[in-house]
């Protein structure tokens, strides 16, 4: 479904991704862990089409399509969804208007008519319940004055509305208390299915107790230095990144 090969990306002269290789099959959940500044959010942003980052080498294909040729919105139409680490506040645009605009853009691309008001409201009610998001927030400007937890839940709520093929969660767990974490994880789990894959970026093994990954990758300084199953997260918790980096020191990718 997703095939990342030798991906290099930079911002200005600052090289951030230095040769990422990653293959994700339908239905799989991949967790990416790594120290601050290692490039996790950059990878997520590059996948979603943030033009601030320049891809200098490598390729990304998604269901056979060359993702790097697609604009951010076209990637969304193909089914790539990024839940932001820092959701952006947009004063003056109500969340519900934005959501409707987004859903209709997706539908237009699929040749579907605009969503009926009643159907939209029903969906909002249903999906906001899934992440226990107060649906009064729909009337407020996008993320403006939302608490940290509300912002993260709003991201997962939007993901549920969009029903993407690939959901990228960038530290969606950071800043959530344990109850909210369970709610959010539960929401994600409900979305899991044989055709839907996830990339879950996190610092905390705790999240992975709830969203159990098929694979865990450790990203250090723009490279995946170690991959394994869910036990790798536990190992990380014990040894820390330093331990993992030391072990994998000899295993720097060649070329």
């Amino acid at each position: 479904m997703l095939e990342i090969t030798n991906l290099h990306a930079q911002i200005g002269d600052h090289k951030i991704l230095k040769g990422i290789n990653l293959t994700i099959n339908p239905g799989e959940v991949h967790s990416i862990m790594g120290p601050n500044g290692s490039g996790k959010s950059t990878l997520a942003s590059v996948l979603a089409g943030n033009e601030n980052f320049e891809v200098t080498e490598g390729s990304i294909t998604f269901n056979g399509k060359d993702v790097l040729e697609l604009a951010a919105e076209e990637r969304a139409w193909e089914g790539i969804f990024l839940a932001f680490q820092y959701p952006v506040e947009i004063p003056g645009v109500s969340t519900s208007y934005f959501l409707k605009a987004a859903m209709n853009a997706m539908r237009k691309n699929k040749g579907l008519p605009e969503i009926e008001a009643a159907e939209f409201l029903k969906l909002v009610e249903q999906k906001s319940k899934m992440v226990a998001l107060d649906d009064r927030l729909m009337g407020r400007a996008i993320n403006e004055g939302f608490s940290g937890g509300e912002k993260k839940r709003n991201e997962v709520f939007q993901m549920a509305m969009m029903e993407p093929k690939l959901g990228i969660l960038d530290e969606t767990d950071s800043g959530l208390d344990i109850d909210a974490l369970k709610i959010v994880a539960n929401g994600v789990n409900k979305l899991r299915g044989p055709d839907r894959s996830f990339i879950v970026v996190t610092h905390y093994q705790r999240l992975l107790d709830y969203i159990v990954p098929d694979y865990v990758h450790v990203l250090v300084d723009g490279r995946i230095v170690k991959s394994g199953d869910k036990t790798l997260a536990l190992e990380l918790e014990k040894k820390g990144y330093a331990g993992i980096i030391a072990e994998s020191g000899a295993a720097q990718p060649v070329g």
Binding site: A48, N50, P91, A105, N109
Partner: peptide, 28 residues
Amino acid sequence: DDEAIFYLRSRGVSVDAARSLLIYAFAG
């Protein structure tokens, strides 16, 4: 705001509509 435009685009809103929406919001 570039960040806001990217946020909107990442949800499927076209770049033109995203710009329009932000202008609307400013005037709002």
